[in-house]
Design a protein around this nucleic acid. Structure first.
Lengths: 346, 346
DNA sequence: GGTCAGGCGGAGAGCGCTCTCCGCAGCCGT
DNA sequence: ACGGCTGCGGAGAGCGCTCTCCGCCTGACC
């Protein structure tokens, strides 16, 4: 259309072509106040003729809005030297969240910027950057239980929404899934399938989501008259599921059902069971959690508790956008209901 | 530190506190020209005292740089109604690329903004946005063979680097892995393992990476005196690997080795083999491609051709950054060498 | 001692946009 | 018929920064 480094058309150019003032063009473009319909059309024609696109920086400068939301991934564990290669990115979890966020942000014309923060001093800088126009608000994805980042963001008065319940209460909105009810679904299902000796492979005991799943599962089991549930902890990785399953079987060789706190670990558990020649689901039933792509990739395909991550992320984005528009909005929390997806392992 | 909507400190504030002019503070902050070392320190003290952070929008406005790179994911297949939920995001591929990009961008203080473009009219708008200060350049991840986006970006004179060889030559730099040599590695390995009846499960026949893997594999096999290689095409999904493996075995029941064009399909193939009671690797050996997390999750763990995706993405980011700094730079292409990772399936 | 070069810091003009303020019509009410 | 109100569009002041231009001061050289 235009050549390489031709100056891009500005509002002024459009105004001149349309024979109106800059202010009028601005009004038309932003749909503000009633502008004479004829002029309206003249202006739009001029916009199209010039190929005008508003300069984001100039607009930001005066509106004090960037039209950008930051996805802040707080990965405070270890990886300080190289936090980017952390296993998190290869976890399907990340992609689902990004997809969900974009689906809500895109219609609003808002960009998504990725921020990964590792070490603590990076946190301070991040907050400074955030304050000073990096983004209008943040979606915080905290992987670390004792993470200070949500608190820092709240303290700075920055709009923010946390995905997943923060370990400590924080004056920020959050979205979450009812982990406890999801785990209860799994418990009820295993019991309904006639399983008598049921165990659990848990996530890390300091992560809220994991804690809730444990609590939900054990209390549901208690309701079914099983006060003791053998459990071994993993760390949500495939490999740790493998390890935990072996350990669980060593102590409880006669297990006929197991609830695994996420699909990745369930996949690991499944391969151990197969290796040991335990028929699934005939000899032992397995229920996972997440309904990630791993559930479908597993053989047999995994019965699992679905966490509507895309919807949760989209809702988080909408909450954030609303908060950015009206900072006086009070913080809210939305809890999504999990559903049981029955496949071949139960 | 400061309260909610206190005006953030500006250059002017810092200058006043330091007793110098705005220009001097700007020079110190940007490390330009030799400023008197004493003043230098005075200015930095004032910066720290005020907690000053440069306003990105204001800076962009004058420098015509945004300090942002866009990751443009061009997903032109079907998903127009809802391109965000496309399977792509749950593919570990995406996360590895993001991680690699961030590792190169972060040290340069450059942000990563995500852009997903579906329909064609969205492309035109994207290019407009890109021109007008959304980003200084783009990393293009094209999932669609006949994609026009790289060409559009090149035509607009925008800096851009493509990950993966574009289907049609385009005046843009790109990074890629030597898909043909990777496939040859797999062929050599299967032959060295003494396999006689070797087949292949390919990717879509219109995707460059897939084409190269097919060409590399068949020509390497030809060098080993096998001019005919039975092959079935999949589409890089787990499920298609399942289907393709069944089909391949139907026509070639005595297969004792198979090269699968990516790990996800290999995982699918593996579960079919197990279901059919074919021992891996004793009766049939399997080699994948990518070395994604799926390779480790597979049972037995998958022998695969490693594609250094993180390094490739990081290199793409560096190429782009260099191009942004100096637009006169000519386009280059960097091809990474794949390596064979031998695990338990061969 | 005079001149000139060079280094350093200040003044101030903009970058492209939004938005307030104001003026000018046209129309209503009395 | 006249004042005031309302609706619409223009003028122009910034938003916070960078960077050019210029002036001052110091030091070196003749």
């Amino acid at each position: 259309m235009t050549t390489d480094n031709a100056r891009l058309p500005t509002l002024e150019d459009v105004a001149r072509l349309a024979g109106v003032s800059r202010a009028t063009v601005s009004r038309v473009i932003n749909g503000i106040r009633n502008v004479n319909p004829e002029l309206h059309e003249v202006v739009w024609n001029a916009v199209n003729a010039t190929g005008y696109v508003a300069n984001r920086a100039a607009r930001s400068l005066v509106t004090r809005r960037t039209g950008t939301i930051a996805l802040v991934v707080s990965d405070s564990e270890s990886h300080d030297d190289d936090p980017f290669m952390s296993r998190f990115f290869s976890d399907p979890f990340f992609g689902r969240v990004v997809g969900g966020l974009l689906s809500a942000l895109r219609p609003a014309g808002v960009q998504l910027a990725l921020q990964i923060v590792g070490a603590d001093q990076a946190r301070a800088r991040l907050v400074g950057d955030l304050r000073q126009g990096q983004a209008d608000g943040s979606i915080v994805l905290s992987l670390h239980p004792g993470d200070t980042l949500p608190q820092l963001i709240a303290d700075a008065g920055l709009p923010g929404v946390v995905i997943g319940r923060p370990a400590r209460p924080v004056p920020l909105s959050h979205v979450d899934v009812a982990n406890d009810r999801g785990a209860a679904l799994a418990a009820d299902h295993l019991v309904a399938r006639g399983r008598r000796r049921i165990g659990m492979i848990t996530g890390p005991v300091d992560v809220p989501a994991s804690v809730d799943r444990i609590a939900g599962f054990t209390s549901a089991m208690a309701r079914h008259g099983r006060s003791y549930v053998p459990a071994v902890a993993g760390n949500f990785t495939h490999e740790s599921g493998d390890r935990a399953m072996r350990e669980l079987l060593t102590d409880n060789p006669d297990l006929d059902g197991v609830f695994v706190a996420n699909d990745l670990m369930a996949q690991g558990a499944l391969s151990v069971l197969q290796e040991l020649g335990r028929a699934v689901p005939d000899e032992i039933a397995v229920v996972g959690f997440d309904d990630s792509s791993a559930a479908l990739a597993a053989r047999p395909q995994l019965t699992t508790v679905r966490q509507p991550l895309e919807d949760m992320a989209a809702e988080a984005a909408r909450l954030l956008l609303a908060r950015v528009d009206d900072p006086s909005l009070s913080t809210t929390s939305i809890v999504f209901e999990p559903t049981l997806i029955v496949r071949a392992t139960t």
